[in-house]
């Protein structure tokens, strides 16, 4: 009898269950909210740094090509950059390759030409053209028609490049921003706070 009575006494009463459910609800609600917030924060952080890495990549691509460039031209909206670079490596179809196909993929020996503006070092009779442009959410690098996506993000990456010509050289100033996930009421500072600057000088004498 005592045992039966004891078992019955161990059962939860309705108020107990209600209270337990309420407390559990609060706890699980808090946990869920916290987890969601944590996940959102993590996602925003991940996106921020991931996009930042892409900013660095764009800058590094541009700097590499500007340094070895001969001419740099930016579009009026500052979002397309065209760089003329020497043809250092012999490609299939080049005059040297037609004469000797084994030269394909080898460095070209430069030739010197005396021009009205002085001596000029040329790698082949032609040059290559590299174009940086924006296509949708992607930043494209196009070299002689071959397209490479160098950055791709839903964070609205916006590179802007200014080309400044000096007497014999020029430099390209690039700034890249993106729209982070977390913003403060859509304030402009949310985007401008992500800006990365870069300045790259031509190593060669400017030709254009």
């Amino acid at each position: 009898m005592n045992l039966k009575i004891s078992r019955k006494r161990f059962a939860f009463t309705l108020p107990e269950i209600t209270l337990a459910l309420a407390v559990s609800g609060v706890v699980f609600g808090a946990t869920l909210t916290s987890s969601t917030s944590l996940q959102k924060s993590f996602n925003a952080l991940d996106s921020y740094f991931g996009t930042h890495m892409q900013q660095i990549r764009i800058v590094d691509y541009l700097s590499r090509d500007v340094k070895r460039g001969l001419i740099v031209t930016t579009s009026a909206d500052l979002q397309t950059v065209t760089i003329t670079i020497p043809n250092y490596i012999i490609q299939a179809g080049d005059p040297e390759a037609l004469v000797n196909p084994t030269l394909v993929g080898t460095p070209r020996t430069p030739t010197m030409a005396y021009t009205p503006s002085g001596w000029q070092v040329n790698y082949g009779n032609t040059t290559s053209t590299v174009v940086y442009s924006i296509s949708g959410m992607s930043i494209l690098r196009t070299e002689n028609g071959t397209v490479t996506t160098i950055a791709s993000s839903t964070d609205q990456l916006v590179p802007q490049t200014t080309d400044v010509e000096l007497t014999n050289t020029e430099y390209a100033k690039t700034s890249i921003t993106f729209q982070p996930i977390f913003t403060s009421g859509g304030a402009q500072a949310s985007r401008s706070g992500t800006i990365v600057y870069s300045t790259a000088y031509l190593r060669n004498k400017r030709r254009g």
Binding site: G50, M53, Q54, R57, D60, Y61, R64, T148, T149, I150, A151, S152, S153
Partner: peptide, 18 residues
């Protein structure tokens, strides 16, 4: 390797550059 996962399937990012 670096950030290739950010570029989508079949598109490489950093390893083409660095």
């Amino acid at each position: 390797t670096g950030m290739d996962d950010r570029m989508g399937a079949g598109v490489r990012g950093d390893s083409l550059l660095r």
